[in-house]
Amino acid sequence: MRTLLLTIATALCISSAVYSQESGRTIPNVAVKTLDNATFQTGDITNDGKPIIINFWATWCSPCKRELNAIAENYEDWQEETGVKLVAISIDDARNMHKVKPYVDGQSWEYDVYIDPNADFKRAMNVNNVPHTFLIDGNGHIVWQHNAYNPGDEEELYELVQKLAAGEPIE
């Protein structure tokens, strides 16, 4: 009986959730750390009405690094053409969080990087595992998300960014 009730509740929740997708969710506000160990509120992520990519990664995650390194090769062009900003959220915990800044600088990434050492932002964004990418439109709504990385995925991502920058619907 209990299982049945739970199933019903789950189904209802899903239907509500799917319904709510239409309006688009905003970025939840959670405290994360900057690379200089200052506190930063994720609700303050903005880009002057231009698209934002939020990417969850970790220094121990090979596909994550492949993805961010692949994007880094074209990031300057992407920024020039669309004004997009990439916010990279490292979920490295206390074991590796001190290696994030050397890695980011070592790879010469130009992204805004924050550290989420106890997975608070990861949980708030309902991320199961990394890499996980979100696209945020000019109004601050999450309009698209993607899990995992396959070489070439960045091309699809950029097509969507271009659509968003042009004010076109992405579906």
Binding site: H98, K99, K101, P102, V104, D105, G106, S108
Partner: peptide, 10 residues
């Protein structure tokens, strides 16, 4: 930690 563009050490 010390880092600059292209180099990092911890």
């Amino acid at each position: 930690t010390y880092s600059r563009k292209g180099f990092g050490v911890n």
